[in-house]
């Protein structure tokens, strides 16, 4: 597969080194659990932008991603993966964050299209965000404008691989750890009143 289509986030390298140790120290049960969560993925496909047009073929007969155990669900509570498909305007971002907060862990985000990486063709728009990863934890970028369904499937496969092998530090862990950073970014754009509601104190939490 063309590696260039799949962009890891910028801390990929250091993460890989870090998780290598974890991978080796995994028990059999943990391995099995990883395998199961890689094998079964519930997706809430957030059609924020034009990338959404590529998702229906992926889920239906043409590309049939159900083969890989990927199923669409309606609500974030049930979902493991969120696809943010394209540019996020301020209005959409609020909902994206909200949806992200409501997913149960472990949760992953696939960002679809160039706009989520650097703004893409909306790079100078006053109303869209440029980097999705400043606001939520992102696990997988599928670059392109528009990326083909095959690219999205490739993204899924890669994500499944890394979950199975436990080779990445998931975005949600980073989000919890650096919550102050993400929160500051969110507040800067959206103001205080739409802050997500978090019960637990992430800073003092023991990550496994």
């Amino acid at each position: 597969m063309q590696k260039g289509f799949v962009a890891y986030n910028n801390e990929q390298k250091s993460l890989e080194a870090e998780t290598e140790g974890i991978k080796n120290s995994q028990t059999l049960i943990q391995k099995a659990m990883n395998w199961f969560s890689a094998r079964s993925m519930f997706v809430v496909a957030y059609g924020t932008g034009c990338g959404a047009i590529e998702m229906p073929p992926v889920f239906t007969s043409r590309y049939d991603i159900e083969r890989l155990g990927v199923v669409g669900v309606a609500t974030p509570r049930q979902a493991d993966i969120m696809i943010v498909s394209g540019y996020c305007s301020l209005k959409t971002l609020r909902r994206v964050i909200r949806t992200y907060e409501q997913m149960s862990e472990p949760k992953y985000v696939i960002a679809l299209g160039s706009c989520t990486i650097n703004g893409g063709m909306y790079w100078d728009s006053y109303n869209t965000i440029k980097k999705l990863e400043e606001y939520i934890g992102v696990d997988m970028y599928v670059a392109g404008c528009m990326p083909r369904p095959e690219a999205l499937i490739e993204g899924f496969v890669k994500l499944q691989e890394s979950i199975r092998n436990n080779t990445i530090q998931p975005g949600y862990v980073k989000y919890r750890e650096d919550y102050a950073y993400y929160q500051a970014n969110q507040e800067k754009l959206l103001g205080k009143e739409t802050q997500p509601v978090y019960e637990e104190d992430y800073a003092g939490m023991n990550l496994s």
């Binding site: 957030y46 974030p76 994206v96 909200r98 409501q102 019960e199």
Partner: peptide
């Protein structure tokens, strides 16, 4: 179990 702090923290199409 994660307890929602607010009664309005329901999945409501991403809406608050």
């Amino acid at each position: 179990s994660v307890k929602p702090k607010d009664r309005l923290d329901i999945s409501y199409c991403g809406e608050v």
